[in-house]
Computed example of a mutant assay.
Amino acid sequence: MRIACPHCGPRDVQEFSYLGDATPQRPDGMDATESAMADYVHQRDNPAGSHRELWYHGAGCHAWLVVTRDTRTHAIAAVETMAQARAGAPA
């Protein structure tokens, strides 16, 4: 699998580290219940199909990327920097 890093261009997946699902939102600070924090830390979906994931380009530019990938075929539909993903910018 190759990931098209926005800074370095297409690179082999071995240059990256996978963190996990990019969609969970951290509960709001000290007001979060223990149950909400436990769910945030431990509960993850395992979808078949399109999925947004966090990847770190450790052997390149050291950027955190949001990769939209089909978990069935590993086809990559989009790669965004964290800044683009937070701003809602198209990939």
Rank of each mutant, 00 (worst) to 15 (best):
G9T: 07
R11M: 13
P10M: 07
F16T: 01
D12T: 14
V13G: 00
G9S: 04
T33C: 04
M30T: 15
P6Y: 06
Q25R: 12
R11F: 02
E34T: 14
S17N: 10
R26V: 13
C5W: 00
P27T: 09
H7N: 13
A22L: 05
A22P: 01
C8M: 03
R11W: 02
C8G: 01
E15L: 08
T23K: 09
M30C: 11
P10W: 06
Q14S: 15
A22I: 09
Q14K: 15
Y18W: 08
T33R: 08
C5D: 00
M30P: 06
Q14A: 15
E34D: 14
R11N: 08
E34A: 12
F16M: 01
P6N: 08
P10I: 10
A32Q: 04
S17Y: 10
Y18M: 03
Y18K: 02
G9P: 01
M30S: 14
T33Y: 03
C8I: 02
A22E: 02
E34R: 13
P6M: 07
T23S: 10
P10A: 09
T23R: 12
D28T: 13
Q14H: 15
A32E: 03
G9F: 01
L19F: 12
Y18V: 05
P27L: 07
D31M: 14
A32K: 04
M30G: 08
E15G: 07
D31C: 11
G9V: 05
D21R: 08
G20V: 10
C5H: 00
P24R: 07
S17V: 14
H7C: 10
A32I: 13
E15Y: 09
V13K: 02
C5Q: 00
P24H: 07
D28C: 08
P6Q: 07
H7T: 15
D28V: 12
Y18I: 05
C5T: 03
E15W: 08
P10T: 08
E15C: 11
P10R: 08
D21L: 07
D28S: 13
T23L: 11
R26L: 10
P27W: 03
L19E: 06
A32C: 07
D31F: 12
Y18A: 04
D21W: 07
P24A: 07
L19T: 08
D28E: 14
S17G: 12
S17M: 11
F16C: 00
D12K: 11
P6H: 07
G20Y: 04
Q25E: 10
Q14D: 15
L19I: 14
V13S: 02
Y18E: 02
G20E: 04
Q25H: 09
H7R: 15
V13R: 03
D31A: 15
M30Q: 13
C5S: 01
G29N: 04
G20K: 05
C8A: 05
C8W: 00
R26P: 06
G20W: 01
R11Q: 15
A22Y: 02
